[in-house]
């Protein structure tokens, strides 16, 4: 059986908020390394991979591998009943029909108990090859979100170019064009506010802004985001948590 306790409900709430517009139904795979999820969006253009490691749980017990087939819209409805600071305990049998969720406030005088019906989801698991990226950019997640939102008002797609000068996001649309260039600027005092660029080779790729804006819903998970790019391979956007991560992969656009 599975028994997993999070000190703060906000962790799972934020993860679900971050991915629910990308995927609807997905398996939460529970095993001795924690809770993992991998799912592709309907159009096969974007993939999300999530891992909440056992170290992130106040208590974690999972005797055998359990797949929890969850509709994320339904899960979000149940999670609304949890306050951010509530302790959350997830419980499931070995072949579960339902996931039990218990939310307890810090004063220990309120216990909320919910059951979420599970579904059988036949989900394909994709192997993601190890990639040496041409460029890896680490920057404040709020800044990345702002750039994506601003450019999405002008165009459907953004060109991302990483060179030794910096990383440039540019787009052209019906009303005009826009570009934002970030130069390497490590912040010694507050590393989470700095921008660092590791460049093996110049990279230039084009991506759909609709998806990037969607990924930015994970900004609440981490102050920083890591963007990894290589020519002609999917973009990797990673939000690292203290004990886990949410990663998004996005296929590039090609041709004109």
């Amino acid at each position: 059986m599975l028994e997993a306790r999070l000190e703060q409900s906000s962790v799972l709430k934020k993860v679900v908020d971050a991915i629910k517009d990308l995927v609807q139904d997905c398996n939460f795979d529970c095993n001795d390394s924690g809770i993992q999820l991998q799912a592709m969006d309907n159009s096969h253009v974007a993939l999300v991979a999530m891992h909440l490691k056992t170290e992130g749980f106040a208590l974690y017990r999972c005797d055998r591998n359990i797949a929890l087939g969850i509709n994320l819209v339904s899960l979000q409805k149940v999670l609304r009943a949890a306050q951010n600071e509530d302790v959350m305990t997830l419980k499931a049998e070995d072949s579960p029909d339902a996931l039990s969720l218990v939310f307890e406030n810090s004063e220990n005088d309120r216990i909320s108990e919910y059951d979420l019906k599970l579904m059988d989801i036949d989900q394909e698991h994709l192997g993601i090859p190890e990639t040496e990226y041409g460029a890896t950019v680490k920057m404040p997640s709020a800044e990345f979100q702002r750039i994506c939102r601003d450019l999405s008002l002008l165009s459907e797609s953004v060109a991302i170019e990483a060179t030794k000068e910096g990383i440039k996001f540019s787009c052209t649309g019906d009303i005009g064009k826009g570009a934002v260039t970030l130069r390497q600027n490590p912040n010694v005092e507050k590393p989470e506010l700095g921008t660092t660029i590791e460049l093996q080779e110049p990279v230039a790729l084009t991506f759909s802004l609709k998806y990037l804006v969607n990924f930015c819903k994970a900004s609440g998970l981490s102050n920083t985001v890591t963007i990894s790019l290589s020519n002609e391979v999917p973009l990797l956007i990673e939000y690292e948590m203290e004990h886990g991560y949410v990663r998004f992969y996005l296929a590039p656009k090609i041709g004109d």
Partner: peptide
Amino acid sequence: APFQEDLYKYFVSS
């Protein structure tokens, strides 16, 4: 508009 690639081209079923 540029053509959007499919992830199946890059990632393999495992």
